[in-house]
Amino acid sequence: MDFPQRFSNLPEYAFPRLRTLLDSHEPGAKPIAMTIGEPRHAFPGWVKDVLAENIGSFGQYPANDGAPGLQQAIADWVKMRYGVPVDAASQVLPLNGTREGLFNALIALCPETRGGKQPVVLTPNPFYQVYAVAALAVGAEPVYVPATEATGNLPDYTSLPGDVLARVAVAYICSPANPQGAVADRAYWADLIALAEQYDFKIFADECYSEIYRSTPPPGALQVAHEIGADPDRVVIFHSLSKRSNLPGLRSGFAVGGKDSIARLKQLRAYAGAPLPMPLQAVAEQVWRDEDHVIANRALYAEKYAIADEVLGDIQGYAPPEAGFFLWLPVDDGEAATMKLWRETGVRVLPGAYLAREVGGHIPGADRIRVAMVAEKQEMQRGLIKLRDCLYR
């Protein structure tokens, strides 16, 4: 049987690769999982009550474009958070998790050609693997742009040659960045938006970690686009309740952008999407309207930042993350360090190379490990101390 060749050079997804690397080896002690970014803080206790009150609507087909109340709650949150007024009915699309949106938006919005040539999709390197798979799915050429210490851990798209930029259809950008925790400031967004205006491409801003930060709220792509008067369809932002509200199993996120962009996303959703069940839309509406639990959640991460800084602060090359909940730690070899840590201590982390692609014989992140600070504080502290003593002393 023949299969599409466009996926033939796609590497195995990070976590199956990790299982292949580690699972045939016994851990050195009781395992401490610090790999996947699955929040373990408590979600709001009243969620179960909202779900129970709306349980009967499992008997209804979900509203394809999102229930009006949920659309409005998202629009209100965007106005509150970024100062940008958006029309709930025409500029908001609730998502069944942002992975759906980040993938399907490219199907809906990427043209077949750019100037008669194969379109280019820009992605940071390392990156969230969905970006690359989406590019391949639409027949675009993914161009992996280093996001390393030398570039401030964000991709420098402005440095690309003009012939590449002329073919760009979409640029993905994650801020706060996964895995590095770097934040795109207003100047970065303004430069990128100006570049997109010059070369007429769209920006897909993956902002799923935007509500976990040390002190200053990260600026958003839509916020800066609004401030500088850019085309409203230039930017589509993607957000989630997974990290903000510790509800990864709810699978609730949203896309917000210009009316034309969202109309095309809704058109695709009508045929190929998976709208959130109505009881879960009711929960999501109330969660987007509540900030108290977000503030409490951020305070817990502030304590974790302090623990990480205390335990790892003396390590050469340690860079405290500006935001998000990952540590991006320097090692000689990410795979070797991951194996050593597992076999000697039971601490399970992710090799940085598993989040990147080789370009020009170099894999950004091959000399890094990613460590998720999602466990309960005492467990996280134990894990970091084990990690430090195993790899750095």
Rank of each mutant, 00 (worst) to 15 (best):
Q281C: 12
A282Q: 12
A282P: 00
A282S: 09
A282Y: 06
A282D: 00
A282L: 03
V283F: 06
V283N: 03
V283M: 13
A284D: 01
A284L: 04
Q286D: 04
V287H: 09
W288D: 05
D290Y: 07
D292C: 01
D292E: 12
H293E: 11
H293T: 07
V294K: 06
I295V: 12
I295G: 00
A296R: 11
N297W: 02
R298M: 08
R298C: 04
R298P: 07
R298K: 07
R298G: 05
A299I: 02
L300D: 05
L300I: 05
A302P: 00
E303M: 01
K304H: 00
Y305D: 01
Y305Q: 00
Y305C: 02
A306N: 03
A306I: 03
I307G: 03
I307A: 12
D309W: 00
E310I: 03
E310H: 10
E310Y: 00
E310K: 14
V311A: 07
V311W: 04
V311G: 09
L312F: 07
L312H: 09
L312C: 10
G313R: 01
D314R: 08
D314F: 02
Q316F: 06
G317E: 09
G317Q: 08
G317C: 13
Y318R: 02
P320N: 04
P320D: 01
P321Q: 08
P321V: 09
E322K: 14
E322F: 00
A323G: 11
G324Y: 10
F325I: 06
F325P: 01
F326I: 04
L327I: 13
L329Q: 13
P330R: 15
P330E: 14
V331C: 13
D332F: 03
D332N: 14
D333C: 10
D333L: 06
A336T: 15
A336G: 12
A337G: 11
T338I: 09
T338K: 06
T338C: 14
M339V: 14
K340T: 15
K340Q: 15
K340Y: 05
W342Q: 08
R343I: 11
R343L: 13
R343W: 01
E344M: 14
E344G: 07
T345M: 07
T345H: 00
T345Q: 13
G346Q: 08
G346F: 07
G346A: 07
V347E: 07
V347M: 08
R348G: 00
V349W: 07
V349D: 11
V349R: 12
L350C: 14
L350H: 11
L350W: 06
L350G: 10
P351E: 08
P351C: 10
G352L: 08
A356W: 01
A356G: 05
R357S: 11
R357M: 11
E358C: 04
V359G: 04
G360P: 11
G360K: 12
G360F: 05
G360V: 09
H362T: 12
H362Y: 09
I363N: 03
I363Y: 02
G365M: 06
A366C: 03
A366Q: 14
A366S: 13
D367G: 03
D367E: 14
D367P: 02
R368F: 09
R368Y: 08
I369V: 15
I369G: 15
R370K: 06
R370V: 15
V371I: 15
V371R: 15
V371E: 15
A372S: 15
M373N: 02
